[in-house]
Design a protein around this nucleic acid. Structure first.
Lengths: 223, 223
DNA sequence: GCTTGTGAACGTTTTCACAGCG
DNA sequence: CGCTGTGAAAACGTTCACAAGC
């Protein structure tokens, strides 16, 4: 990395890592977990790269942002590297999450089994529909939107998933942020405007298909 | 762009556009549709940039990959630019889509209302569970996995959404590709290995939360 | 032997800054 | 005047290639 004219080398934090690197870290973690589950103890950057479609050099560079995790001549120990990456991503701890919006998508997310393994759990759900409030889905109680503040602060929640209609998303986002949430995963097809200290990840299902559509339309003619 | 030493200028296709550019195109489209719906007829690159968190120059450069769509002194006409971007993304046509896996997530996707507006519709669903086969969800019939070939070819389907458990995803992917699908939107938390002519977009819900977790953990201490 | 970690080279993407136009 | 479109410059990310280590 570029050299630190900065007087305090300690400020060269891991947070400076390019977004693309952090994103790939999640891919490495997922594959390493699969590898470990299938009995693989160590793996080289080139083997891992082949499985994921990255170059070996890129994997090594990415990991080198955060430390020296490999063994020359051997590769990386899966269990060790998993622990390191989890620690970098912050998923070595438990993250309680609040879900806002218990529609079709919200219900599916409540029942989704993949969060727990990575350290996340939806511990509370909110909705504006009086018919839903008070019900339980997968043992998770559904609260009214007005209880946001109480739910978030009593359970130490820092992350929210927003799965409400597009028209309500910005209002809901404002509310969860006011309640203390600092990270938002937004499934509504709108760009949220949030204060700078709040992190934002958007997933727009139609947009993902659009990217496929473009790729298909612009592919080598006959291939 | 760099100049074409290439003898055949027609080969300078739009397909060469960086992925990041194409991805932003989807953001532009979404915002323009919202703007038009709220009565805005024209918008400048800097106004659009402010709403989306991009710079004005970036928006102009991105659009310039594909043509001259703006009016100096005025900006861009929303309706016109929407049509242009749709044409570039290929969403000016109708895309029938097959869904594989009618679990929690699959059912939510079947009921999701946001696809139609962008040109996509799930026209058939497949599952391996005999109890589900033959049922209708949102007027969509659920077929057995063995009917992939028939469903895909009879309906001219080129895109598939995979929402099956991680262990089944690669097998299902192989099957839909064999049936003629050339674009896969994969919700299973695994990296699929697909032939080069098949395009692949993955959405891993836990991974999205991991990216948030990293951002939160590595934020300016007190902010 | 094989594999990591890394400076240096390379290529790509973003930003700058301004000429040209309505 | 405001805004686009675009070369040129700057920033950034990736790949190369090899010294060092097991």
């Amino acid at each position: 990395m570029s050299l630190p004219k900065d007087k305090t080398p300690e400020t060269i934090t891991v947070g400076d890592a390019p977004k693309a690197v952090v994103n790939r870290l999640s891919f490495y973690l997922r594959e390493l977990q699969n590898l470990l589950a299938s009995g693989t103890a160590t793996i080289s950057s080139s083997q891992l790269g082949k499985r994921l479609g990255f170059t070996d050099a890129q994997i090594r560079k990415d990991l080198a942002y955060f430390g020296h995790f490999g063994y020359p001549g051997v590769g990386y120990r899966c269990d060790e590297l998993i622990a390191k990456i989890k620690s970098i991503l912050g998923t070595d701890r438990f993250w309680p999450v609040v879900l806002v919006g218990v529609g079709n998508l919200g219900r599916a997310l409540l029942r989704y089994k993949g969060f727990d393994k990575q350290g996340f759990r939806i511990v509370a759900a909110l909705d504006s529909d009086p018919d839903k409030i008070g019900r339980l889905i997968e043992d998770i109680p559904i609260h009214g939107l007005n209880e946001i503040q109480a739910v978030v602060s009593s359970r130490g929640i820092r992350l929210a998933i927003i799965a409400v209609p597009a028209n309500d998303a910005q209002t809901v986002a404002n509310d969860v942020v006011a309640a203390g949430v600092v990270g938002v995963l937004n499934f509504a097809p709108v760009t949220l405007i949030l204060p700078p200290h709040v992190h934002n990840v958007g997933v727009d299902l139609a947009m993902e298909l659009e990217q496929l559509s473009f790729a298909v339309v612009n592919s080598p003619p006959k291939s």
